[in-house]
Amino acid sequence: MLGKGEAAGQAHLHKDDDGGEQPSGVVKLISAEGFEFVVDKKAAMVSNTLRNMLTSPGGFSETREGEVRFPEISTPILEKICQYFYWSLHYSSGKETSEFQIEPEITLELMMAANYLDT
């Protein structure tokens, strides 16, 4: 899964104009089944899609309410994604690397979500 790590690195370069803003606080991610995950904004911004969502100048509803619904992502996947956010955050600070465990049965779904989230 090192491929994801690289993607995160690209994401950083991709949207550099808003990179200066220090994300603070938390954001609520809601799965298709209605489970809510509260994560640090900093972590959420590992995903480029989420980053744009949270920093876009127009004031979309997500920015105002601080919650994002994902009608097409199931709870276990979203959970795994949140774990990945934190893992990636830790990893990208460059101190150590550890294996990010992925169960084979969710690999496909997780990959699709990753593409969607540009992570």
């Binding site: 744009n52 969502m53 127009g58 509803s61 105002r64 994902f70």
Partner: peptide, 19 residues
Amino acid sequence: IYNHNASGLSFEELYRTAY
């Protein structure tokens, strides 16, 4: 958006549509 009226829109939804 052009009408300065974007606050009611869901980014996620639009993004997903385009996606």
